[in-house]
Design a binder for these strands. Sequence first.
DNA 1: TTTCCATTTCAATGATTCTTGAAATATGAT
DNA 2: ATCATATTTCAAGAATCATTGAAATGGAAA
Lengths: 122, 122
Amino acid sequence: MEEPRALTALAAMANPTRLRILRALVAAEPQGLTAGQLAETAEATPSRASFHLSNLADAGLVSSTRNAREITYRVEFAAIGGLVDYIIRDCCRNNQTVIACCAPSRNCGGNPDAARGVDPET
Amino acid sequence: MEEPRALTALAAMANPTRLRILRALVAAEPQGLTAGQLAETAEATPSRASFHLSNLADAGLVSSTRNAREITYRVEFAAIGGLVDYIIRDCCRNNQTVIACCAPSRNCGGNPDAARGVDPET
DNA sequence: TTTCCATTTCAATGATTCTTGAAATATGAT
DNA sequence: ATCATATTTCAAGAATCATTGAAATGGAAA
């Protein structure tokens, strides 16, 4: 990933509504969620949800496919991974402290569960 | 890291001038760089650099210490790591595609060097 | 104290981004 | 065709963020 794309991805994630949308899509993998379901989940009007959805799509963070009149969105994990890769490598020059936060027994966010590699799902 | 702080960190990084500043600080580790040096590196006026520097400091991404009349800034790798941790764990629920981007032999940004774990420095 | 240097703060302006609600588009059903 | 549903697009206004240049602050030297 190059800088302009990384900046777009960072800006896309730097919004509470879009982060909620992203989170809902992560939870809804691999089926995805329709624009309407996302609007409901994010407590946004259809128009507002659509605005944020196209922002996320422009950033490559989500993809969409139309099924009849519904449009289903899915999170693009590879794009998020590309951003993480960019932060670690291009931005932080493979700094060990940053890399350590990806390890299964990490503790970088102040969450005690994280240090034990506990899946937040369970 | 909790959401509000992650949002602040993402917003801080989502700006070309601040990303340049961060990059310069990463390269200048562990001594850090003064506000004046950073302004020069980022090709910004002192006032503009100061604005972005306090934004980065508010986000916890840099720290500063005063030495005589100069103020030296340093990158806070732990905070960047915390953000990466947040993206991977809280946001992406430990998705493997995202985690794989932190591995030494990763290839998530389209850069062939990345797959071989080549340090961009060398 | 006066002066100089590094940096920050402030107010004004300009630029982006977000929200809202109405209208448009696309698709399917009657 | 007509209608209903799902979604997007658009224009206007509100809110937030960035840039500028001038003034203020903090600190060291003359």
